[in-house]
Simulated scan of single mutants.
Amino acid sequence: MISIIVTGHGRFASGLLGAVEQVFGPQAQAIAVDFPPELGTAELDAALNAAVTSLPAGSGVVFLTDLLGGSPFKLASQIALAQSQPCDVIAGSNMAMFAEVALERDEIASVGDFVERAQDAARAGVASLRERLARQQARASAQDDGL
């Protein structure tokens, strides 16, 4: 099973993991590492390294981060590049992404497949109510017109 480390500014990580667990139950091999304002980058780096070390080696690790280019992303990237096991970092994480890959981790063969599926889920999880209603109305109109 691919391990997941969620990290981000403030309480993003614990909030995201907590939300997924509230809806879908406890998640094995998933750790939240928060970066509150009172924590420095050295402490965050140590916490992320400790998280990687605490997880079983083998299937790989994926970091889910909040913001591309932020300190959590940069530190996770440095750690990922130093790993001997498959490892990657995804920025811009959201609940739809996390939920989908967390629930399907046993069926995902590689870190690369995991990342691809996560990115697809993230895009699919971002939607506009107004656009969705307009598409539904257009479909209903087409059906009424016999198209």
Score class of each variant (00 low, 15 high):
Phe114Arg: 04
Ser14Asp: 08
Phe24Ser: 15
Phe73His: 04
Glu38Gln: 09
Val33Glu: 05
Val61Arg: 00
Met95Asp: 09
Ala47Thr: 01
Gly70Gln: 07
Pro26Gly: 06
Ala109Lys: 12
Ala30Lys: 01
Asp45Glu: 15
Ala30Pro: 00
Asp145Thr: 03
Leu147Val: 14
Ile2Phe: 00
Asp144Ala: 14
Thr65Ile: 05
Ser3Lys: 00
Ser110Thr: 15
Ile108Thr: 01
Asp106Pro: 08
Val111Ile: 12
Asp145His: 12
Arg130Leu: 07
Glu43Gly: 10
Ala19Lys: 07
Phe12Ser: 11
Gly25Asn: 08
Leu44Phe: 09
Ala32Leu: 03
Phe98Ala: 07
Ser3Val: 02
Ala134Arg: 10
Glu131Cys: 07
Pro86Ala: 02
Gln137Val: 12
Pro37Ala: 06
Val23Leu: 15
Ala42Thr: 14
Phe63Gly: 01
Ala50Asp: 15
Ala134Trp: 08
Gly10Ser: 12
Ala140Met: 10
Ser77Lys: 02
Ala122Ile: 02
Gly69Val: 06
Glu43Cys: 08
Val6Phe: 03
Gly70Ala: 15
Ala138Ser: 12
Gln137Asp: 15
Ala122Glu: 00
Gln22Leu: 13
Arg123Leu: 13
Ala82Lys: 03
Gln78Asn: 08
Arg130Ala: 15
Ser77Asn: 11
Arg105Glu: 00
Leu133His: 04
Ile79Thr: 05
Asn49His: 10
Ala109Asp: 12
Ile2Met: 01
Val126Arg: 06
His9Gly: 09
Val111Phe: 04
Asp113Pro: 04
Gln119Leu: 15
Ala42Ser: 15
Leu16Ser: 01
Arg130Cys: 09
Ser93Phe: 02
Ala30Cys: 14
Val126Met: 10
Ala13Trp: 06
Ala142Gln: 10
Gly92Lys: 00
Arg132Glu: 14
Ser14Glu: 13
Val33Ile: 09
Glu21Tyr: 08
Leu81Ser: 13
Phe73Val: 07
Pro72Glu: 06
Arg130Glu: 15
Leu55Ala: 06
Phe98Tyr: 05
Phe35Cys: 06
Ser84Ala: 12
Pro37Leu: 05
Arg123Asn: 08
Ala80Tyr: 07
Ser77Leu: 12
Asn94Cys: 01
Ser59Gly: 11
Leu44Gly: 11
Leu64Pro: 01
Thr65Leu: 04
Met97Gln: 00
Ala57Tyr: 03
Glu104Asn: 14
Met95Lys: 07
Asp88Ser: 15
Val33Met: 03
Ala19Phe: 11
Ala19Leu: 10
Gly146Phe: 08
Phe114Tyr: 13
Ile79His: 06
Val126Ser: 11
Gly125Arg: 00
